[in-house]
């Protein structure tokens, strides 16, 4: 009898416990970055610096969690950065318009939040419908909407900057700068979004269906998965998360312009891929995305804190680390 068959006949072979390096790759990279940071600057792990880095990761992070679902199900969304700018601009205009009638109050801010969420869902639905019902490549659809959202915000701002009414801003400001128990709101929101995202991806039929569609759409269709509905949902989910990210973004500087959110889409996609999600779909993990976002933020922070190299080379350092992080994973998984 051969080894192969005798092993196979065992109804339930013991699960082999082995450290999975490819899964741990991004975590190790993050740990390494933190150690380097500690060595270079004692302030690196200070409460203030950690709060800064985590809070500014939150925008890209919240968006990247949504992007993980879109990419896992075989899609892509290039429009998120422009979408965020467009949502930010519209929120500011809506709030400014409401000030004369409602006064500078919480109500105005609430209307702003509602506008952000609603607009996010709508923008996501537009992308999703064009991809599913319109049967157009996600790349093309979102490349198109990327330009559209960006132009719209430029037009709304008349080429300049939209600024939130000063009094409303004071009310709204704690959304970014405040917190509870010393943890800033953006960090709390990011953590909640990430945890829910992780659970949805791993434990719910929706997450499973995303992976199935990304692996092989036909199999999913033949297995009674509502492919178009799931696809559409991923884009709407992403849109809502862009809305949430924008809600956290607007109180930070209280303004939006055509330069808001530039390249966010690429940062989000990079974070997703660094985290181990497969770009062509079929496999995704949200915790990896979170680690990817943190890696990207810590690199930028480190370069600012330490002034190691000419600032002209910051982009190159980031590029090298992104490629390395992904390469390490590939090598290990190939050796598995």
């Amino acid at each position: 009898m051969t080894l192969a068959t005798s092993a196979a006949r065992q109804p339930s072979p013991p699960a082999r416990r082995r450290i999975n390096f490819s899964a741990l790759g991004p975590l190790l990279a993050l740990a390494l970055l933190i150690v380097i940071g500690m060595l270079l600057n004692p302030n690196f792990l200070s409460y203030g610096n950690l709060t800064n880095v985590l809070a500014r990761s939150a925008f890209i992070g919240i968006i990247a969690v949504g992007m993980t679902f879109v990419i896992t199900s075989g899609g892509l969304d290039l429009s998120v950065g422009s979408m965020a700018a467009f949502i930010a601009g519209t929120m500011i205009i809506v709030m400014n318009l409401l000030v004369p009638s409602l006064g500078a109050s919480w109500l105005v801010v609430l209307c702003g939040l509602g506008t952000g969420l609603l607009l996010g869902a709508l923008a996501g639905a537009v992308n999703g419908l064009l991809v599913t019902v319109g049967r157009i490549e996600a790349f093309i659809v979102t490349l198109g909407t990327m330009g559209i959202f960006r132009s719209l915000v430029t037009w709304l701002a008349d080429g300049g900057t939209l600024s939130l009414d000063f009094t409303v801003r004071e009310i709204y400001r704690p959304f970014y700068y405040g917190g509870i128990f010393g943890v800033a709101w953006p960090i709390i929101v990011f953590a909640i979004v990430a945890i829910i995202g992780e659970i949805v991806m791993r434990k719910t039929p929706f997450g499973r269906h995303c992976a199935a569609i990304g692996s092989n759409e036909q199999v999913a269709r033949y297995s009674a998965v509502r492919v178009d509905l799931v696809r559409l949902s991923t884009y709407v989910l992403l849109g809502v998360l862009v809305g949430i990210a924008t809600i956290m973004y607007v109180p930070r500087l209280g303004s939006a312009s055509s330069s808001t959110g530039v390249l966010w889409e690429l940062e989000a996609i990079a974070a997703v891929i660094i985290g181990g999600t497969v770009l062509k779909g079929g496999f995704g993990r949200v915790w990896g995305t979170v680690v990817g976002v943190l890696i990207l933020s810590f690199i930028g922070n480190l370069l600012n804190l330490a002034a190691l190299v000419s600032p002209y080379l910051n982009g190159a350092i980031q590029g090298v680390i992104i490629i390395l992080a992904v390469m390490l994973q590939r090598e290990r998984s190939a050796a598995k």
């Binding site: 500014r56 500087l253 330069s259």
Partner: peptide, 15 residues
């Protein structure tokens, strides 16, 4: 850029 400047300044303040 406002956002970039915000982040760079945050880091200067930590440093």
């Amino acid at each position: 850029n406002r956002d970039d400047a915000f982040e760079v300044m945050q880091d200067f303040l930590s440093r």
